[in-house]
């Protein structure tokens, strides 16, 4: 009587993950190659496929780690967070959080933020594109009405704040040639990730402008967001920052702020 399908599959996967599974009896041992050797081919595939997917999603982290350390890290991470999707592009989702715990307080603590930046790029690349706002209609709004507006950001916008120079680290690994060395003590960076002209864009923002965008993404009105930005930097140039938002194409259709904050689409 052959083993039931669900039982066989559960044991097979457990065996690939290195757990005691008692699967050997369900596998033919002919052709001069042992069951253990046959299973080892699949176990090798399991780890290689996972590590390759991670490396594609996290090329800068992989470069920072070096091949040997990255392989160990990928293996550890896979044990802790096995793939939960048939879509390989999803396997890396829990990695930033995993690294945050794994390297908390140590010399590699910044790995988590580098990974968060790389994952933000991945998400940005696959996000939907919302309709752009009608900038002419926006321009015709009175100053008071403008302050009450809620400006939603495009679904592909991500905001990554780090106490390390993550943008500079990421930038140092782009393009051919030697990787420039980066002073980890150079201080905090706030990075805007978005998609424009079919590609992911990254830009390091001053703290006040970053705060403005965080507030807008959190659903604050333009007036509330301005107040937060000005509290960060009293010399913050609001008009110039809004102009940059429009030029980058990071704004989506606009909502007026009314009472309960539900908002009405006006553009």
């Amino acid at each position: 009587m052959p083993m039931r399908l669900d039982e066989l599959q559960r044991r097979f996967v457990a065996s690939l993950y290195g757990e005691p599974a008692d699967i050997e009896g369900a596998i033919r041992a002919d052709g001069g190659i042992s069951v253990a050797d046959r299973l080892a081919i699949y176990r090798g595939n399991l780890h290689a496929t996972f590590a390759r997917a991670l490396e594609l999603e996290y090329p800068v982290l992989a470069a920072l780690c070096g091949a040997e350390f990255f392989a160990v890290l990928a293996r550890e991470f896979q044990q802790a967070h096995p793939s939960v999707s048939g879509d390989l592009q999803q396997v890396g989702a829990p990695l930033p959080q995993y690294l945050r715990q794994r390297f908390a307080g140590g010399e590699h603590a910044y790995f988590a933020d580098v990974a968060a930046l790389e994952w933000a790029r991945e998400e940005s690349a696959r996000a939907a594109a919302a309709a752009a706002p009608d900038l002419q209609a926006l321009g015709a709004v009175t100053a008071d009405a403008a302050l009450a507006l809620r400006l939603p950001l495009q679904p592909g916008v991500r905001l990554i704040a780090s106490r390390w120079p993550v943008y500079t680290i990421w930038q140092a690994h782009q393009g051919p040639g030697e990787v420039r060395s980066v002073d980890l003590g150079a201080g905090a960076e706030q990075v805007l990730v978005w998609r424009a002209r079919g590609a992911q864009q990254l830009e390091c923002l001053p703290p006040a402008e970053f705060r403005l965008l965080e507030a807008l993404r959190g659903g604050a009105s333009l007036g509330e967001a301005f107040d937060l930005a000005l509290a960060t930097d009293p010399a913050f140039d609001i008009a110039a920052a809004l102009q940059r938002c429009a030029t980058r194409g990071i704004l989506a259709g606009v909502q007026a702020a009314i009472g309960n904050g539900e908002g009405r689409a006006i553009a």
Partner: peptide, 16 residues
């Protein structure tokens, strides 16, 4: 088949 018990192998595993 490719997954069991919530774990995916992201491989094309042979059917019994």
């Amino acid at each position: 088949w490719g997954h069991a018990g919530g774990r995916h192998t992201n491989d094309l595993l042979p059917m019994p």
